[in-house]
Amino acid sequence: MTDPLIYRDRSEAGQVLARALEHYRNTDNALVLALPRGGVPVAYEVTRALGIPLDVFLVRKVGHPRQREYAIGALASGGALVLEPHGEQLPGAEIDPVVQEETLELERRERLYRHERPLPPIAGRTVIVVDDGLATGASMRAALQALRAQQPARLVVAAPVGAPDTCRALGALADEVVCPRQPEDFEAVGRWYQDFAQLSDEEVLAFLQRALLRTAQSPS
């Protein structure tokens, strides 16, 4: 029997999340920002259901210098860097080369996903930041730190599933955290999806292009 807390895929997760965000349907000047790559198909369903424009906000996880798959923090567009406690204990001489490498990759993805388009204005807007799940929350914290500096009217964290402790902690940084499923035995984001395949850059671009076309065709 399938666990009722497990999503079929990111599209179904986005549809569930959209229902949890229904109270933002008629919000003027709202904006959804997806954290690529996994947050993009989730956010696409949110924007499709609620009629809110979609864009991306780039975040890169920073891996341990000697074990790169082990995240010690995250880097966001604009240079915001958030380190986990175990990352803060490492000397800068070890961390700096990793941050520089991830900065280059972040800049590459900025050029690829945004095609030189500037980030939409943030000041005074309701900004909903979407990811496919919240484990440690490092990526989301980096995004919130960078976005808060641009003075949004309201900053909302939205994810289909997350660790309860992480969701509570993010509540101190955002005006609202919307996370419809918070299993106590969380372990990892991928556990709560039947299909959690990695997305390619081409797939991300396809979602963004469809969202941009929908926005352009929407009545003003």
Rank of each mutant, 00 (worst) to 15 (best):
D55G: 05
R109D: 09
W192A: 06
L81H: 05
Q67M: 13
V130Y: 06
L134I: 14
V16M: 10
D132L: 04
Q15R: 15
V156P: 00
G14D: 00
I95L: 15
A153R: 15
A138V: 02
L119V: 12
R48G: 00
Y44M: 06
S220P: 12
V189W: 06
T215W: 10
L83Y: 04
D175A: 03
I6M: 13
L75F: 06
G133H: 07
V40M: 07
A197S: 15
H115A: 14
V56W: 00
A49W: 02
V127R: 11
P41C: 05
G171F: 06
V189C: 07
L81Q: 04
Q100Y: 07
G63T: 09
Y7D: 03
R37H: 11
R66E: 15
G38R: 06
E101K: 14
A135Y: 03
R148A: 13
P183W: 09
R214Q: 13
P118C: 01
F196H: 08
G137R: 06
G171M: 10
I6P: 06
T2C: 09
F57A: 04
E101V: 05
L106T: 11
F196W: 14
F57S: 03
M1C: 11
T215R: 13
A216N: 13
P219I: 12
G78A: 10
R8N: 12
L104G: 14
E187V: 15
R10Q: 08
L212Y: 13
A135I: 05
E101C: 08
Q217C: 10
L208P: 02
G79K: 11
L106E: 10
E202T: 12
L54T: 07
I52F: 07
L31M: 10
R210Q: 15
L119F: 04
V40S: 05
A146V: 09
F57D: 01
A174S: 06
L173H: 13
T166Y: 03
A159Y: 01
H86Q: 15
A211I: 00
V178H: 11
A211H: 00
R19N: 12
A34R: 03
V82T: 13
I122Y: 01
Q89N: 12
R60E: 08
D131A: 05
A149W: 00
V130C: 09
P97Y: 11
G38F: 06
P160Y: 02
L33R: 03
L104H: 14
I52K: 11
Y24P: 00
A188P: 10
A197H: 12
L75C: 03
V98K: 07
N29M: 02
L21G: 04
V62Q: 03
T47Y: 00
G171Q: 05
G137C: 07
L54H: 03
V62D: 01
R125D: 04
L106I: 11
A123P: 05
A206W: 05
T136L: 10
Q145V: 12
V177S: 09
S77C: 05
F186V: 10
G79R: 09
V204S: 01
L54N: 06
P97L: 08
A49R: 14
L104T: 15
G162D: 09
Y193G: 08
T166W: 01
E22V: 12
L199C: 06
R210K: 15
V157W: 02
Q145K: 14
A146G: 04
C179N: 08
G133D: 10
E69R: 08
T2Y: 04
